[in-house]
Design a protein around this nucleic acid. Sequence first.
DNA 1: GTCGCGCTTTCCATCCGATGGAAAACGCGG
DNA 2: CCGCGTTTTCCATCGGATGGAAAGCGCGAC
Lengths: 261, 261
Amino acid sequence: MAGASHRTPGQPVTTRTLSALDAFDGGDRVLSLSQIARRTGLPVATAHRMLGQLCAARLLAKRHDGLYEIGARMWRLGLLARPTTLREAALPHLHDLVIRTGHTVHLAVLDGFDALVIDRLAGSRTLPTRHSPGGRLPLHCTAVGKVLLAHAPASVQERVLTSLQRHTPYTITDRRQIERQMAGVHRTNVARSAQEHREGTSSVAMPVSGTTGVIAAVGVIAPLTSHRFTDVLTPLSAAAAAVSASARDADFESAAEPERD
Amino acid sequence: MAGASHRTPGQPVTTRTLSALDAFDGGDRVLSLSQIARRTGLPVATAHRMLGQLCAARLLAKRHDGLYEIGARMWRLGLLARPTTLREAALPHLHDLVIRTGHTVHLAVLDGFDALVIDRLAGSRTLPTRHSPGGRLPLHCTAVGKVLLAHAPASVQERVLTSLQRHTPYTITDRRQIERQMAGVHRTNVARSAQEHREGTSSVAMPVSGTTGVIAAVGVIAPLTSHRFTDVLTPLSAAAAAVSASARDADFESAAEPERD
DNA sequence: GTCGCGCTTTCCATCCGATGGAAAACGCGG
DNA sequence: CCGCGTTTTCCATCGGATGGAAAGCGCGAC
């Protein structure tokens, strides 16, 4: 008796196939067939066939040793995604900001119910080295997160506000209080987090506006706890404005070209 | 009578679905349903369903105005791909090379039958600005290409050597001559191209070695025609060595080849 | 050397989900 | 208000997906 007779998950084929990519969301660069099968819960034979197709599409690549990794095509397509565009437009200004403040700088966008870190330049008066783009930050207890949350669709706000997870003793878990801060963000264009995500680390952030409202947030992170950030606000505000301007220039383009098939 | 009765392409479902991504290979950031359908030759109804699934997998995203674009998930997965790793490991050294030579610098890997440009820093003694990663270069008439070709699997070499396309009057289209140059690359670790790809532009390149042999090539491009590049070879060689070392630390293994099951 | 164990690959009988023309719904410019 | 291109929904038809089982590999242990 063959497989089809037993289970009936009722999921579209393609969806199941693409779920194989979930296995990579953990951050691993290379995985074996059986690892992927285990992580996704797919039967081995099925996973094998699906991975074959993903490789044919060059989204994945199979190495000589039989392990699977993300393919160059995925990279190339990722280059066309908005994060890349934004990041390239923002890079020089973020760099300026690092130089002028000496602190680590973040650029993040809203992605689902998290802030997705598009870029992060490390400061401390040394050569800025880049780290961990692609990471996620919570919306309710980081400065960039609060900016994005304040400008998020109501559905997202609702969902986030009803599950305020504690990260440190300073994390705000009272809905009212967060809502007041969100209102403050709209008034002042600035959000702060004082050790609410990591102890000993505070941050300030401001919104980046594209043609369709707030599209991202720039933030500065400092190791000090009681730092008032007064000396940071001016350069931060300048950077946010500069990134906004670049984003509006670069982001623009739709149709406008002669159509071909 | 419904659709299934007519055509019988005989292609796996998933493969057809992923072929929708081909529409983006042209480099457009946003496309409409009908554009994608036209470009891929898929029936509209089918394309519509497929795009829906790609969006569900978050590889694509549908904007409020109904247009489709590459999704943030694709970007994040692309971050795990080899090109990203290599690029980040190489960046500081490429930067050095730009500073020391003043010329534009390329980092490329073998991808199918082309060189895939992983990064490119523009020189001319100004602030190095980054351009066009993700682009492709021919293997037989660029310096980085020749390096990669010389170390490519025999099957790739064969295919390339039997279709040497002319780009300029200087392009070498004689198989013997290219083969002699490939041997030279193995002897000297250096490849050159003298206006063979673009008139008025020449380049030199050297291999980057990972743990499993040559995995990439670094190249310097100069506008001069008769430039002997003697002053470039030392810094180039240093950069290639430095990138190789970083690559070995950060990552290991190579892949990339014509696909097979 | 041989045995065992886990991973990968192939096979194939069963049946469930893909298919795409047609028509409706939408949006827009005239 | 109407026509045209686009997007979305519908559904009768049938082709491709499915996964357990077994064969094929490596590899380390004894």
